[in-house]
Simulated assay, not measured.
Amino acid sequence: MTHGAYSDAVIDALAAEYADQVITASPVLALDRFAWSLRTWARAEARAELIHRHLAQHGIINNRGTPRTSLLVMLAASERVAARGRDELGLSPAGSAKIAALLRSAGESALSPDERRLLLGMEDGTR
């Protein structure tokens, strides 16, 4: 294995770390409604990180003297997905402000009963 960016096992392990860190920082992202977006973001972020590490160690030029085009293309695509995911999940300043405004305007009615119970548990420390 070279960089791991094609390995689901390697990507999933790093993505799980990222998801755990984000949920610790923003517990609302543990809600089921965020699961798919969180997984997509974390996998894209992990793939981009693995490619960055590889390129940092080996450079963008391969041993034949040509650019590592497939890695650079995959890196750009992964970074786009990761950036969009950060914004959608509120992990960027603009995304966070947008989500806060939406939640303020929608109020508790935007949450299912299970989500309300989960969030109440998070607020009182019983999570």
Score class of each variant (00 low, 15 high):
L72I: 08
L72A: 05
M74L: 14
M74K: 14
L75Q: 09
L75Y: 05
L75I: 07
A76R: 13
A77W: 11
A77V: 04
A77K: 15
S78D: 03
S78W: 02
S78T: 02
E79N: 12
E79Y: 04
R80M: 09
V81G: 01
V81F: 04
V81W: 05
A82H: 02
A83G: 10
A83V: 02
A83L: 06
R84L: 05
G85F: 00
G85P: 00
R86A: 06
R86T: 01
R86P: 00
D87A: 10
D87H: 15
E88S: 14
E88T: 05
E88W: 09
E88V: 06
L89W: 12
L89K: 10
G90Q: 00
G90R: 00
L91R: 00
L91G: 00
S92Y: 02
A94P: 02
A94H: 09
G95P: 00
S96R: 03
A97C: 05
A97S: 04
A97V: 07
A97L: 10
A97I: 03
K98A: 11
K98N: 09
K98Y: 06
K98M: 10
K98T: 08
K98P: 01
K98E: 08
I99C: 06
I99F: 07
A100Q: 08
A100R: 12
A100V: 06
A100H: 10
L102V: 08
L102A: 14
L102F: 13
L103Y: 10
L103F: 13
R104T: 13
R104P: 02
S105F: 09
S105C: 09
A106Y: 11
A106Q: 12
A106M: 11
A106H: 10
A106D: 04
G107M: 11
G107L: 11
G107H: 15
E108T: 10
E108D: 14
E108A: 15
S109T: 04
S109G: 07
S109W: 01
S109C: 05
S109Q: 12
A110H: 02
L111K: 11
L111Q: 07
L111V: 03
S112E: 03
S112A: 04
S112G: 02
P113Y: 15
P113L: 11
P113C: 09
P113S: 14
P113G: 11
D114T: 09
D114K: 13
D114H: 12
E115M: 13
E115Y: 05
E115C: 07
R116T: 11
R116C: 10
R116A: 05
R116M: 13
R117W: 01
R117I: 04
L118M: 09
L119W: 12
L119S: 09
L119P: 07
L119A: 08
L120A: 15
L120P: 02
L120N: 15
G121P: 03
G121M: 09
G121R: 15
M122E: 03
M122F: 03
E123P: 00
E123R: 12
E123S: 04
D124M: 06
D124N: 13
D124G: 06
G125H: 13
G125M: 12
G125Y: 14
T126G: 06
